[in-house]
Design a protein around this nucleic acid. Structure first.
Lengths: 344, 344
DNA sequence: CTGAAAGCGCTAACAC
DNA sequence: GTGTTAGCGCTTTCAG
């Protein structure tokens, strides 16, 4: 009746089954060379004693915690959900567990990250941006013998298994779409500068402008941080200008939704008065109204694959070093040609 | 240059600092009775060796893994995000880590759950619905000495620390709001039957009808499972009827959003043609258009509090046994009076 | 104030 | 086929 009724150990099971601890260990781990009769006795004893293996002890001796980490910096909830769903899907019914590490200001604290993961006893880790791009972390992880795989890195692709999506091309495509619709005053809301994708996407936008022979309006570039609030504020700044843009490209869907709310507050209709495009194809982009033109990034698939890359290394299989994932421009109702010039 | 360069242990640090392992242990754990000089030597040595304590070893001897679990069944992503945000907020900068356990069909597998958590070596666990309501799990957890706290249970409140919200009253309030607007044909989309909240909310709806003297239309009750898709399908079934409802109460926001999409597909405008109300005040309810009338449930706060309850038990503090949380009816643009009778 | 010995629960290596 | 011995890295006695 005590609060901690001392859990049965392998020795207890052995005693009850009339065998040694090692034999119990063999049975429980499915090792060969144990007679069927003994196997049954051991299993019965384990059941009777409500025996459950102590992962901690097993982890210590095997040098394997069966714990995988997911490191990310807060940005959009929908992005994180997809990451986790992907990892958990790969991990389902397997022996590994997922430990989440939302780490604020990863870049500034990159020196601590590997140590943190190390003392948590992780076997491996999936690095989402911006940790995926931090060479210091990669280095420390390697030194500590912690396997990893990355999602969306832009640097040192060869240094560790990577899941890639072509941010530049993807961004070029959305921007080209908006330009093709006839927009010339295009506002841009960037994501966190610490995320390499922000710069890559900005490059892609710029290529589209160049290719179309449309001058890029650097004065219409605003800084956000991937949160809806930041998109909301940035859009308000843009829309308050005398030469307000007729279209806004946001570097993720959350910020685009923030912009959508801002437009609404100013009495603007999307897409009649303002064209909006996001990035990610997160759930929110499909559910808001109008649904957002965006670029699908297969975050879920990348997470599944990254998890597999980590597990492959742990199991001694050869891990895919690099996996490229296709993006897809999704034109939805939030983008349309600008109002005819001179009518406003 | 090997992949696993053998991590420095407490013994290595001790040797380098010229002290015993035990002394290193003392310093690292901030125990008293160590001279300042020795402390410094030990710290220097640890740093030089890139020493990081091995949680696994520490966990084994202390019988404390510093791992807390979160058990939930898949339902809505936004709900899970809030739960995690709450737990992670409470855990930030502390020694505990969060391990997530999304378990499908918890109720049918309730016999396995505690064993699963036990072998994962968890110190404690926060149980979200429907695990929060499963007495078998509670029992097994207690027997295994795993501390827990619950979110939104409806049974056996006294059995383990609980965070409560009055689902019945909350549901009564939304329903009363819709009835007061003049709706008489009210469709209902229920959540998973395995979640006790589904029944509680249905009760609340029913009370509102009774109090208003409006007969409740049991034939307009549809079963969903808390996913957007299920809400979508259920709404289509309701709206296809000759006597389609003029209002739909969904038991969470995801299903309400599904209903919103269904209405849109049928050319119905919300709220002019159809009033919609959800439950939870999840992000999506604020972002969709029109924003949803819903009931705020402080999921985040409940998660923070539940985590605190677990930690309190682990630290030997007396845990709050029961915490009641306030809900709040949020009337937004998705609800309005029905079209005048006879016009349609 | 510091150290030596023992052991947490399990498994690797070897015996038999 | 099965048991013995040792030890994973740390903390807990209990001596000094």
């Amino acid at each position: 009746m005590e609060s901690a009724p001392r859990r049965a150990t392998i020795v207890d099971v052995g005693r009850r089954a009339g065998v040694s601890a090692k034999t119990v260990s063999r049975v429980l781990n499915g090792e060969p060379h144990v007679s069927a009769a003994v196997q049954q006795r051991v299993r019965d004893a384990a059941e009777a004693l409500h025996y459950h293996p102590n992962m901690l002890a097993r982890a210590l001796v095997r040098q394997r915690s069966m714990l995988l980490g997911l490191v990310y910096e807060n940005p959009s909830a929908s992005y994180v959900v997809e990451l986790q769903r992907g990892m958990l899907t790969r991990l389902a019914n397997g022996p590994y567990r997922l430990v989440v590490f939302p780490i604020a200001s990863i870049i500034e604290r990159s020196g601590e990250v590997a140590g943190l993961l190390r003392s948590a006893g992780l076997d491996g880790v999936v690095l989402a941006p911006p940790a995926a791009d931090d060479l210091r972390i990669l280095n420390d992880l390697a030194a500590a013998g912690i396997r990893c795989a990355r999602i969306g890195p832009s640097r040192g692709i060869e240094l560790a298994p990577s899941n890639l999506v072509d941010d530049i091309t993807a961004a070029r495509e959305v921007a080209a779409h908006v330009i093709a619709l006839g927009h010339r005053q295009v506002g841009i809301i960037k994501g966190l500068a610490s995320h390499a994708a922000s710069e890559a996407r900005a490059m892609g936008y710029s290529q589209a402008f160049f290719a179309a022979g449309v001058p890029m309006r650097l004065d219409l570039v605003e800084q956000g941080d991937f949160t809806q609030e930041s998109g909301h504020a940035a859009a308000h700044r843009l829309l308050a200008r005398p030469d307000a843009p007729t279209a806004i490209l946001a570097q993720n869907d959350d910020m685009a939704v923030g912009a959508l709310l801002a437009a609404r507050e100013r009495g603007l209709t999307v897409p009649d008065d303002l064209t909006l495009a996001g990035f990610d194809d997160s759930e929110i982009s499909r559910v808001c109204w109008p649904p957002l033109t965006t670029v699908r990034q297969p975050v879920f698939d990348m997470a599944v694959e990254a998890t597999d890359m980590v597990i492959a290394q742990l199991e001694g299989r050869k891990a895919t070093a690099r996996q490229d994932h296709a993006h897809q421009l999704l034109v939805r109702a939030s983008s349309a040609p600008p109002r005819p010039a001179g009518v406003g």
